[in-house]
């Protein structure tokens, strides 16, 4: 369970996150949406300690992210993260990308890591690209490898930061399919995305953020059919046209 308790973050004078509250239960899929600059991506980076925050508290399975005694590296092992621009290691093959962390962090043998990687490659439909380098893969293929790379650490949570927004339209579906399958298999997921079809299919809750605040939250139907704020109405009209 991830508990976010009134966190506040400033970049200098800029108040990026204001009193953000949220609880993500095991097995839930939460979709975060909102205009750019609303603090969605920053929120994800606060959860796994990639970005510090000044006030409030985040607990991941009752472990405080803010507590200086917390081993953030250990914490990150159980939170996988997928990025907008994939961020694969360009000098390594798909297989090497996936096996690196299990081998170096978990100290798995090469064989064990590769077996795990093959299983994941099968899951994301990329077995034939195991030895390909990122630059020779399409965006959709790279993103699926990136998802496999995160899953290789057998995380309890997965965070997605606009995983399809850098993709050509025809590749979006192949990535979303993998994510849907993951959600349905019971993974706890936190997804920053504007893909409302995806939200409709798997989201247990949708959070709408604006200017560093959560301004609406609810089920897909609540949010989509009955948005409460003008800001959310405007946003929906913009992404749906």
């Amino acid at each position: 369970m991830i508990e976010i308790n009134k966190i506040n973050k400033w970049y200098g004078d800029f108040h990026v996150l204001q009193d953000v509250d949220e609880v993500i239960e095991h097995g839930q899929t939460v979709v975060i949406c909102g205009p750019s600059g609303s603090g969605k991506s920053t929120l994800l980076r606060c959860i796994n300690g990639l970005e510090p925050f000044q006030k409030g508290e985040i607990l991941v399975d009752k472990t405080s992210v803010k507590d200086p005694k917390t081993d953030l590296y250990k914490l990150r092992e159980k939170i996988g993260m997928v990025f907008q621009r994939f961020e694969l290691y360009p000098h390594m093959t798909a297989m090497e990308n996936i096996t690196l962390a299990p081998r170096k962090v978990r100290k798995w043998s090469k064989e064990r890591a590769q077996d795990k990687a093959m299983e994941l490659l099968k899951r994301v439909g990329m077995v034939d690209k195991a030895d390909a380098y990122p630059a020779n893969l399409s965006g959709g293929q790279q993103q699926r490898i990136a998802i496999a790379r995160s899953l290789a650490m057998e995380p309890a949570y997965m965070m997605f930061d606009e995983p399809t927004s850098a993709l050509d339209p025809e590749m979006i579906k192949e990535v979303l399919d993998v994510m849907v399958e993951l959600a349905k298999a019971g993974m706890t997921m936190l997804c920053v995305t504007h893909e409302m079809g995806f939200a409709k299919e798997v989201a247990d809750e949708i959070i709408f953020m604006d200017k560093g605040k959560i301004v609406e939250r609810g089920t897909y139907d609540d949010f989509f059919n009955n948005p409460q704020t003008d800001r959310a109405k405007l946003f929906l009209s913009q992404i749906l046209d």
Binding site: L50, Y73, R76, R85, E87, Y89, K104, M153
Partner: peptide
């Protein structure tokens, strides 16, 4: 990119491992 660093750290690698590998 900064996200590349974040991507490595998000897999649980330490700073030293991140630079080294």
């Amino acid at each position: 990119s900064k996200d590349q660093y974040h991507a490595v750290l998000s897999t649980g690698m330490t700073q030293v491992q991140m630079y080294r590998y």
